[in-house]
Design a protein around this nucleic acid. Structure first.
Lengths: 142, 142
DNA sequence: ATGATACTTGACGTTTACGTAAACGTCAAC
DNA sequence: GTTGACGTTTACGTAAACGTCAAGTATCAT
């Protein structure tokens, strides 16, 4: 009655398994479902997660880490799964994609700048540490 | 009585000038001050911002764009400005710096992955658009 | 059949980051 | 002298993303 190893790929996960694997609470996972980001099957009342659901959760968490709101994450995931019939929809989608890309590029620059500054700070730190350790070789001063 | 051009660098800014330049509300700027991220001088009651204050605001907004909370931004800015006397403090600071860097590196990976997926989605979009425009050369179908 | 354990659905509480409205001061322009 | 633009504080409101009970259901071992 286990789940993570089952010969073929009829693997399924319980909510707590996923929670542990990705280090989030079950509350959070249920919340994502509430917001339309996950649609696990049910065995009676109990939620049953497929590998596909697992990937979806992964995408949600990745999106979160780079600052997307849950609504934005859902928007992106919807893009993936939708086959919109209209040309207008596709144009709109391309616009949205361009937006997102611009955001992400700016974020990359922000991160690079921040990393550089963190490096500067670290250098200063290490210099002070070296100085202090010279002046008082045993331990801390004050 | 202007502010942005003044021969030497005795430049100062009003709150609305900064608000316009960085496209945030004055409310937000005051809020950052409330949380200890800005300390503008005062002319009577009115806030007066130096170029240094402007840089601080810039850092706050950059930090926000990459997902830092205001408290985290302040922590980083405090690192820059503090000359902590104790070795323990410096060690702690180096730990924090390592943490931040790890976070940012992971974020960079997340962004790259997301960009790749956005590209995939875009390719699909364009293929569909091309197909639809062939099938019905005039405009949209339904 | 009886806990123990895991899962479920509400429902209210909390934190963060502001928005919004009230109520007032100040100074230049008309 | 009042109107309007800009500034101030104080205070309450709000959206997002969960946390935290409470109370019930299902299953499994003893």
């Amino acid at each position: 009655m286990n789940s993570t190893m089952d010969a073929s790929d009829q693997t399924t996960y319980t909510i707590t398994e996923l929670a542990k694997e990705f280090d989030v609470t079950t509350r959070a996972i249920r919340f994502y479902e509430d917001r339309g980001l996950l649609k696990p099957a049910r065995n009676g009342l109990t939620r049953v997660y497929t590998p596909r659901d697992r990937v979806h959760l992964k995408l949600v968490l990745r999106g979160k880490r780079i600052g997307f709101s849950l609504d934005e994450v859902r928007e992106i995931m919807d893009m993936y799964n939708s086959a919109p019939g209209e040309i207008g929809q596709l144009d709109y989608m391309l616009d949205k994609l361009a937006e997102r890309r611009a955001m992400l590029h700016r974020q990359q620059q922000d991160i690079e700048l921040t990393l550089k500054e963190l490096n500067k700070i670290e250098v200063q730190c290490r210099q002070r540490l070296a100085m202090m350790r010279k002046q008082s070789p045993q331990s801390q001063i004050s």
